[in-house]
Write a protein that binds this DNA or RNA. Structure first.
Length: 574
RNA sequence: CGGGGCGUAGCUCAGUCUGGUAGAGCGCACGGUUCGGGACCGUGAGGCCGGAGGUUCAAGUCCUCUCGCCCCGACCA
């Protein structure tokens, strides 16, 4: 594909756009790749769209390779399907709902489990027809609370979503592994540094789940990982090895907990200093509000509760710290003095670190008082003991006990084993070889297209602009006509452009009558991987200049050999 | 939804406190000089000062309401 700049629609910005925070957003705006229509809603301008399409085509190749067939589902979906799965009621304002002229309810699809399940259940009835693997590349809409960072967190965004249907979980495992492999190939082909981590399944539901994270300091997700065995997980999900044991209890262990006055001592720090007890001997009691009623979570004083883990344990979709009034209602005292002893009207979830304590101190459920000498199991029994810890860098690895580190990442892909959540709710059943009917086992696989392009820019730029990895560059080659007022230079450049076109080179011909500086700056800003400069200076010697965006080193090639030189340079960066 | 901030030329922003003729730089158009890293000189076009209401002789500026956008937080593939 070849194009002239003057026939294209490219407007670079000299000044930083006022509302762009992160580098990829700034550069995409400045380079004229995207423009904003409304909060979280963007135009993909010709240059940006070319990069998007290049990525889409890589995705298509790898999806087909993984045995998935492309289709396209509607953006607007009837509420009936969502009511069948139950998500019409579970989803909050993030789901953009609308009514048609007959007052019928619809939504703009944030994802397509319902529609795809409907498609498959209509046609597939036998194990002989399974497995099924389908994907689409489509615009989604999620009415994010706070869209930001350009394409990184838009409300409307392009996503590749794939869905697989199986007769057995073994078969799902196989498809899941194939998808993981396809994702790794896709991101590798884009030249991205990424990592695959264990993830929480969120509102989509399901069991196994992995996220593909492009490593970048601006990433919105925190990842905990082990350099030694390769274990990695989103902090939302991350397990960590047993925390260091608490030091020896400095006092006698009484037969019953002793109440101690602790006036105005609410925080772990205050209480531990006041009582001269290490934070590791305190039990922190947090009251949460959920759609399933209030619950209490217990964690050792030096650790933090992971709300996602708690949410999963409780089995609720809504969870947040309870209000002051609610705490008063549940524990009979203001915030800061709650404790598990004698707390009976709520379900209590205890982190295993709490139960590992031989003896501890905790709130007395009484204003300005704590209990010292509380023995877990003797003085209180939680409804459930589980892992509620928020993993932190420095924790030990749950697999191999090495100390884990933290990194930030941009979530560009997320694969889930859905199991039968949707097939059961929507009666997407099949008959097995013994004539028994059962719901299909499903997997779903998302990949953020715009986000991946943005992530590529986060990873590949310098102070001048983007440094495109070749596969995502809007054009691979920028051919610059330097002296548009010199007929012989124009003629040479035009001739070269024709040759490149004929040779099938992916080139943009900067034929604008602009000053050299303007052209050079635009070429750096947009970041074409290979640049070919035709100017009077070189032409007098019968040469043109060729350089790479990534190192800037200037090479020359005789006029007759430019095509070959460009081709071999392209191979070099490929 | 809570907290903070901003809406003035295509873009980036002054002017708002203290009411009195609508500004700058960049971009754009035209002429000239320039021409290998965002040139220079001259001329010019371009504004319902986000919108509605109010106060006032007079509102970009003060008051009320509204809409939009950005940042922090809670939420999320």
């Amino acid at each position: 594909m070849a194009m002239r700049w003057t026939k294209n629609f490219i407007f670079t910005l000299r000044q930083e756009p006022a509302d762009a925070e992160v580098i990829s957003h700034r550069l995409m705006m400045r380079a004229g790749l995207i423009s904003k229509v409304a909060a979280g809603i963007y135009n993909y301008l010709p240059l940006g769209w070319r990069s998007i399409e290049k990525l889409e085509n890589i995705i298509r190749e790898e999806m087909e390779n993984a045995g998935s067939a492309e289709l396209l589902m509607p953006a607007v979906q009837p509420s009936e399907l969502w009511k069948e799965s139950g998500r019409w009621f579970q989803y909050g304002p993030e789901l953009l709902r609308l009514k048609d002229r007959h007052e019928r309810d619809f939504c703009v699809g944030p994802t397509h489990e319902e529609v795809i399940t409907d498609i498959v259940r209509r046609s597939v009835t036998s194990y002989r027809q399974l497995p099924v693997s389908l994907y689409q590349i489509q615009n989604k809409f999620r009415d994010e609370i706070r869209p930001r960072f350009g394409l990184m967190r838009g409300r409307e965004f392009i996503m590749k979503d794939a869905y697989t249907f199986h007769a057995t979980s073994d078969c799902l495992d196989e498809a899941y592994r194939a998808m993981e492999a396809a994702y790794r190939r896709i991101f590798s082909r884009c030249g991205l540094g990424f990592t695959q981590v264990e993830a929480d399944t969120g509102n989509i539901g399901g069991s196994d789940s992995h996220e593909f994270m492009v490593l970048a300091d601006t990433g919105e997700d925190a990842i905990i990982s082990c350099a030694s065995c390769g274990y990695g997980a989103n902090v939302e999900k991350a397990e960590s090895g047993a925390p260091p044991e608490a030091p020896a209890w400095p006092q006698d262990i009484p037969d019953t907990p002793q109440e101690v006055e602790t006036p105005e001592m609410r925080s772990i720090e205050e209480v531990s200093q006041f009582l001269k007890i290490s934070p590791q001997h305190l039990i922190k009691t947090l009251i949460f509000e959920t759609d399933d009623g209030p619950v209490a979570a217990l964690i050792r004083g030096d650790l933090e509760v992971n709300e996602v883990k708690l949410k999963n344990k409780v089995g609720c979709t809504f969870l947040e710290l309870a209000s002051e009034e609610r705490i008063l209602e549940v524990s009979g005292c203001p915030q800061g003095f709650s404790g598990p002893v004698g707390m009976e009207n709520v379900r209590i979830f205890a982190d295993s670190s709490v139960m590992a304590l031989k003896v501890a101190a905790t709130g007395a459920n009484k204003t300005d008082a704590h209990l010292v000498g509380v023995v877990p199991g003797r003085d209180f029994t939680p409804a459930e003991v589980c892992d509620l810890r928020l993993a932190q860098p420095g924790d030990t690895c749950p697999r191999c006990s090495t100390v884990m580190g933290e990194a930030r990442g941009i979530e560009v892909g997320h694969v889930f084993k859905l199991g039968t959540k949707y097939s059961e709710a929507m009666k997407c059943n099949f008959l097995d070889d013994e004539g028994r009917e059962s719901p299909m086992t499903m997997g779903c696989y998302g990949l953020g297209v715009g986000r991946t392009v943005a992530a590529a820019i986060e990873q590949n730029h310098d102070e001048k602009g983007i440094i495109w990895p070749l596969p995502l560059a809007p054009y691979e080659v920028d051919l610059i006509l330097l002296n548009s007022d010199k007929p012989d230079v124009v003629e040479a450049a035009e001739k070269l452009y024709g040759e490149m076109k004929d040779a099938g080179i992916d080139v943009l011909f900067d034929d604008r009558p602009e000053r050299p500086g303007v052209k050079f700056n635009d070429m750096d800003l947009i970041g074409f991987p290979v640049r070919v400069v035709v100017g009077k200076r070189g032409l007098d010697k019968g040469e043109v200049e060729i350089s790479l965006r990534r190192d800037g080193e200037r090479r020359t090639a005789p006029l007759g050999d430019v095509i070959n030189a460009v081709k071999s340079l392209l191979d070099e960066v490929r």
